[in-house]
Every structure is written in structure tokens, then in C-alpha cells.
Write a protein that binds this DNA or RNA. Sequence first.
DNA 1: CCGCTACTATGACAGCGGTCATAGACGTCA
DNA 2: TGACGTCTATGACCGCTGTCATAGTAGCGG
Lengths: 215, 215
Amino acid sequence: MAVPERGPRERMVFSAAQLIRRDGVSSTGMRDVAAHARAPRGSLQHYFPGGKEQLVNEAVGWAGRYAGNRVARFLAALPEPTPGALFALMVRQWTDEYETHGFGGGCPVAAATVDRAGSADSTREAASAAFTGWTGAVARALADMGVPAERSAPLATLMISSLEGAILIARAERSVRALTTVARELGPLLDAALPGAGSGPSPGAAPGSDAFLLE
Amino acid sequence: MAVPERGPRERMVFSAAQLIRRDGVSSTGMRDVAAHARAPRGSLQHYFPGGKEQLVNEAVGWAGRYAGNRVARFLAALPEPTPGALFALMVRQWTDEYETHGFGGGCPVAAATVDRAGSADSTREAASAAFTGWTGAVARALADMGVPAERSAPLATLMISSLEGAILIARAERSVRALTTVARELGPLLDAALPGAGSGPSPGAAPGSDAFLLE
DNA sequence: CCGCTACTATGACAGCGGTCATAGACGTCA
DNA sequence: TGACGTCTATGACCGCTGTCATAGTAGCGG
């Protein structure tokens, strides 16, 4: 909500992402997008001559860029950045939304993947690019923290996989349990990838370091 | 494929799960389900008077039970079961499918969650129950291996979250990379939860134990 | 005022999808 | 045989959706 004061085109892309992440791609109609963006219906065919597929692809791309930028902002907000703390922030973004706005929405990239990966190849590629960009941003953040180069990309993939899966489970259960669980379980493992750490703290029983406990 | 020789009703539930995991819930038509199950169209309203919602819910329930039973079978197939080896098998089920049958399908429970969680509450509950049953089966398996009771459920949630997310990414990328990555990264952490393990092996560099290397 | 481009406004269309209504086939039991 | 319950068969309906066609408006340079 609070549609920003951008042009109608950008508003429609933004609204498409919003509606897709709530209802899925197939259940989101073009008319709904225009109405949600308070944009004239006639503008759809003007700005998106490629039809729904183009609109969906741009929405997915927008979401991917948003997620990537968000990682950079998270990194900047951390006083002393560690991988586990970054992951806790990524998870917290979702727990905060679910606790204040309800469990209405998921990840638009996941939605696009689930019901277009098998039918619209361009959308599948858009989703792939979104995941790649997001993973790259996380991997760069990890590398900045000192995680060895050959470990940063795999760990980024693990973080995003766990987050996406936990989002799914959280929506189904209408509970943030899965999200807080993965943050708590994965945090110690992630911090153990830092060069300073020996074999790392005993996982799941990190004493004193409660950066993984959201709330 | 190879629709088993059950009754038409069961065939339709099975076919619904197949089609949902490939195309999503909204893009799967009732007529498609009947055709795929080689069942008469008229039987739909006879066996599923609750309409599409009932059919989808039963398909989700079927998938949840299937996943749970599969865990038990995995456990039985392991000569010396460890959490990491179980996870490797769960992941391998998907890499095998993707490498031999292509990236056409995902998890039907995930598909149902993505595009019905916000509209059909009964379907959301069915998905929640499926996740709960599946997680319970994994948690019991972990407990049987000797994982402490209070750690088995959180670890099961972590395993399923990572798997679901990796499935999403794998489909988008048309590559099993994300799947093999989460198996390799998570394996050592999971095995470290066994009582025998001290602080566990240095994650990601477990020497000799290549149970996490699929292929 | 003309011409041009950018954008908006509607109505129509063709297709599909879930559901309903109705009726037929088939076996079983009285 | 006839009634009954189970299952199958099919056509119709209605609402929705993406898309197209057509026309209108606004602003602007000339």
C-alpha cells in the first residue's frame, strides 16, 4: 500500500508484483492490476504491448532488484555485520510483515516460478534472473564480511532457499514459527563460516549471542 | 505417469496432484484432471461434490501423506542412518527426477500454498496439515537416529524449508545446482546434531564423508 | 489551425472454466 | 420385473480474462 508517486507505468508494475505475491499469477487479472494501480485500463496495452507476460516479467524483475537492494541496506544497517545477523534481518523482514499485516502475501518470484515455470519460458527466465541477482547480492555481502570466496555463493543459496521455504510454510500455517526456526538454526552455521571461527559454536546452543532470536 | 490401477476416484486425486505441481492450481482445469486420469468427466461432480476446492484439498493431502511415507522408506533404505544422509536422499529424489524427467514439476503443496493460501482457507489448512505431517515424519526419523528431542523438530523444519526453496530455485534455473548446494551445506550441520559429535566437523569441509555429494 | 505523438477510454469478442441440470447405463436386491 | 443406488454422459450456462479495435483527449511544435 501507499503506492508511491511514480508514473502510471511503474505503478502498474509495482501493483502487479503486489497482487501476484498475494493471489498468484493466474488469479491476478490485468483489470485488477490497473485498478490497484489507479491507472487507466487503456494504458495496459500502451505500456505493455507484450501483454500479461511482459507485465509479469517486469514485476518479477522489479521484485528481484528490490530484494537485492534490500540486502545492501540490511548490510549498512548492521553495526557489526555477521552472516547470521544478516540472515536474521532478512527473516525479520518477513516476520514483521506477517505479524503486522497478516499472512496475505508471499514472494512474487516464488509465485511466478510455481505457476509459470512450466508454461512461459520468458517468465521462468525472469524468475531465474531474480534469484541470481538476489543470491549475488547476498554472496557479495558475505564476502564483504570476510567469508571465503568459495563459500559465499553456496551459503547465499542456502540462505535464500531456507528463507523461501520458510515463507511458504509460514503462510500455510499462518505462523512465523518456520521463519524464526530457520533463522535460529542457520545462524550459528553461517557465522561459523567466518575465518575467525574455529569449528564454530555448538549449533543451536550459541550462548549469549541471541542475534538469531527475533523479537 | 503410469497411473496405478486404483479406482477412478483415487486416480483423479493423483492426477490432480500431478497437474497442480506442474501448472499450479489455477491453471489446472477440472476437465484436464479427468482427462489425465482417464476418468469420465461426469464422475467429478459425483466423487467431489465440493467441487474443485475439495479435489485440490485431497490432492494436497495425498501429497503430504506421500512425502511422509517416503521419509520412512528412506530411513529404512539407509544402512547407517544419519540426518545428513537422510537429507541427501530427500534431495536426491528431486535431482533424480529433474535429471531424468526434466524440470516440469515442483511440489504440489507449495503450489497450493502459493495460489490458494489467500483465497481458500480450507486449502491453506490442507497445505498446513501436509507440511505438519511431513515435518513430523522427518522429526521422528531424526529422533530415531538419536537426535535430541528438542532439536529434532526445528531441524526437520529447516530441512523441509531448505528443500522447498531449493526446488523453487532449481525449477527457475533449470538446474539442480541449488539442490545439491543445500544438501552439501546442510549435511554437516545436521550430522553435528548427533550426540556423539562434539562441535561437529568443520562445516563444508567434512573430510571423507561424501554422503552429501550427490552423484 | 494542423499535424503529430502520447496517452486514455470503452466496448466487443472469443475462449475457457467451474458448475449445474438432465438423463442414460449398469448392477443389485426385493 | 421393477425400483433403487451408483456411476457415467453431455450439453448448457454464466462469469471471467486477455486481447483487440476503435475512438477520443491532451499537449506541443510549427
